[in-house]
């Protein structure tokens, strides 16, 4: 099944771009970008099964722990760095943002929006840590150690002086539904940002 954030990303990546995909999973996004847009580049992944799947697809994948930073990659050596659904699992998401915009001109970041209304209901009314399609883990075994909201991320970008080129939200199978366009922090399940250095 197609992930909705992938749909958005494919639109935002220019033809023939050279990209780095952080936490590329099974390589589906890179494969699609290569096929549809002539994109080249590498995926970084730490999960053995994901790495094998990438290799099977012919996607260039490097076993790499994102918490080790991107020191192996040269300044401005990519057009874009993409990171889907990994920001919240990093030890220091803020430092990764700096690193992304060191190796590339532009970054595309997607993460689960903790302020999504269903999450609010879960926590606010039921009193439990939210569990949902975008946050499927229990509080004790979740890899998501730095959950944030649409608003939190915008604030971080402001503090770092980054330009938000584009932002969007994904909800389930739909994207850009009018409610989530108007109140993204409330109705967006997945936040998708495109940022640059000023």
């Amino acid at each position: 099944m197609m992930r909705t954030d992938h749909e958005l990303i494919v639109d935002w990546v220019p033809h023939d771009a050279h990209v780095l995909d952080l936490a590329c999973g099974d390589g589906a996004l890179l494969e699609r970008l290569g096929r549809e847009k002539g994109v080249t580049g590498y995926g970084l992944e730490i999960d053995p099964a994901g790495i094998t799947e990438c290799v099977a697809r012919g996607v260039s994948v490097i076993e790499h722990d994102l918490d080790d930073g991107l020191g192996n990659f040269c300044d401005q050596s990519y057009d874009q760095v993409i990171m889907t659904q990994a920001l919240q699992a990093l030890r220091r998401p803020d430092r990764m943002l700096d690193e992304m915009l060191r190796v590339a001109n532009e970054g595309i970041i997607t993460f689960p929006n903790f302020a999504y209304w269903r999450h609010r209901v879960y926590l606010g009314l039921r009193g439990y840590m939210p569990v949902s399609k975008s946050l499927p883990h229990a509080w004790y075994d979740t890899p998501n150690i730095h959950l944030s909201t649409f608003n939190d991320f915008e604030q971080l970008c402001r503090e770092k002086g980054l330009v938000i080129v584009d932002r969007a939200v994904g909800v389930g199978e739909h994207r850009g539904h009018w409610t989530s366009r108007w109140w993204p922090n409330l109705f967006g399940e997945i936040a998708v940002f495109r940022v640059r250095r000023r």
């Binding site: 094998t52 990438c54 290799v55 996607v59 260039s60 490097i62």
Partner: peptide, 9 residues
């Protein structure tokens, strides 16, 4: 750095 297709495990 040389831009070659490579996978690493």
């Amino acid at each position: 750095r040389a831009g070659k297709p490579v996978s690493y495990a």
